[in-house]
Amino acid sequence: MGDKSSEAGQLMLITPERVFYAGLLGRPRQRCLGAFLVYVAIKGGLQLAAEGAAEGYSELAVVPPNLRHSIASDYRSVICILIEPETVCDGAFELLAKRLSSTQRQFFVERLRAAYEQLRHQPCTGDIVSAAFDIMCFGEALPPRILDARVVQAIAQIGRFSGDPVTAASCAAVAGLSASRFLHLFKQQTGISFRSFRAWKRARHLLHFANQDHNLAHLAQEIGYPDSTHFSHSIRHFYGLKPRAIFSGSRNLAIYRSGLVGAGNSAWTQEAG
């Protein structure tokens, strides 16, 4: 990663199941991401305010999926790890959160900062699977969740972001199930409703374009939003920032992508603004 963006210290590694972000935090209102989050301060500490919990200050903060929260940093930038909840078995997040919040906290702070330096200075060659990502960040692979093949197929459909909009009815038809039976199966397997899952994946897909100049109306349509209003509302709900603010703060961000939904052998691609 020898480009100017990574030399400046701002980078994002995106895989279908994980994201490693190191860059500007911005000044968002409350955010509510659909992934398990681990924040680490690059310097100084972090102030976390989450619904239902007292405010806390630390170098490391853990937030479960779909919890409204705000995060502030003593420094302009932050490290943030996103882990998709449907990719790990039940209870894995809770166990990891206990370890990250225990007497081992400082060990994980230093490990994640070291992972950041590794990604800054060592080129990425080949693909990276979730187990390798987890070992780099946490020292061990998180146990994967085994999903019904019909749900896996639906998730792959949602992740293509091309062609006709993906609906519960279309996924149910492919799975050979009624719409009601499919929706029940999907929530039972993933722990979240089909609509909420699809909304988060659309918003997550925006990350691939964060450092590029785009016509927002065209980008909204490409990602699968019906119009710019829905696009802006959804992005602000998840990230606490307007789309334009995300693009403005990501101009010097180096983006590295590994893998595609349903394809495990693709090479790394880089998109640096």
Rank of each mutant, 00 (worst) to 15 (best):
Q10K: 14
T15D: 03
F20G: 09
A22Y: 00
A22H: 06
L24W: 03
L24Y: 08
G26I: 00
R27M: 06
P28T: 06
P28L: 03
C32G: 04
C32N: 12
C32S: 09
C32I: 06
A35K: 05
L37A: 07
L37W: 01
L37Y: 04
Q47W: 13
A49E: 15
G52R: 07
A53S: 14
A53I: 00
A53W: 09
Y57F: 14
E59H: 12
V62Y: 04
V62I: 11
P64T: 01
N66E: 11
D74Y: 10
V78Y: 01
V78Q: 02
V78I: 13
I79P: 02
C80S: 04
I83D: 00
P85C: 07
D90C: 08
G91W: 02
G91F: 03
E94S: 08
L95F: 02
L96H: 02
R99T: 14
S101Q: 12
S101W: 00
S102T: 06
T103M: 07
R105M: 10
Q106H: 10
F107K: 12
E117S: 12
G126P: 04
V129A: 13
S130W: 00
S130D: 11
A131D: 15
A132P: 03
A132H: 08
F133C: 04
F133P: 05
I135D: 09
F138S: 03
P143G: 09
P144F: 01
I146C: 13
A149D: 14
R150T: 12
V152A: 13
A156S: 10
G159I: 03
D164P: 11
V166R: 06
A168Q: 10
A168N: 01
A169Y: 03
S170I: 12
A179V: 15
H184T: 11
K187R: 15
Q189G: 05
I192A: 10
S193H: 07
S196A: 14
W200V: 04
W200N: 12
K201C: 07
L206Q: 00
A210S: 15
H214S: 09
A217D: 13
A217S: 14
H218A: 13
H218Q: 15
A220N: 03
Q221I: 05
I223H: 06
G224N: 06
Y225P: 02
D227R: 02
I235Y: 04
I235W: 00
I235K: 06
R236Y: 02
F238Y: 15
Y239I: 03
K242N: 09
R244E: 15
R244A: 13
S248T: 07
I255F: 07
Y256N: 02
L260T: 13
A263M: 15
S266N: 05
S266W: 09
E271S: 14
A272P: 01
A272I: 11
A272H: 08
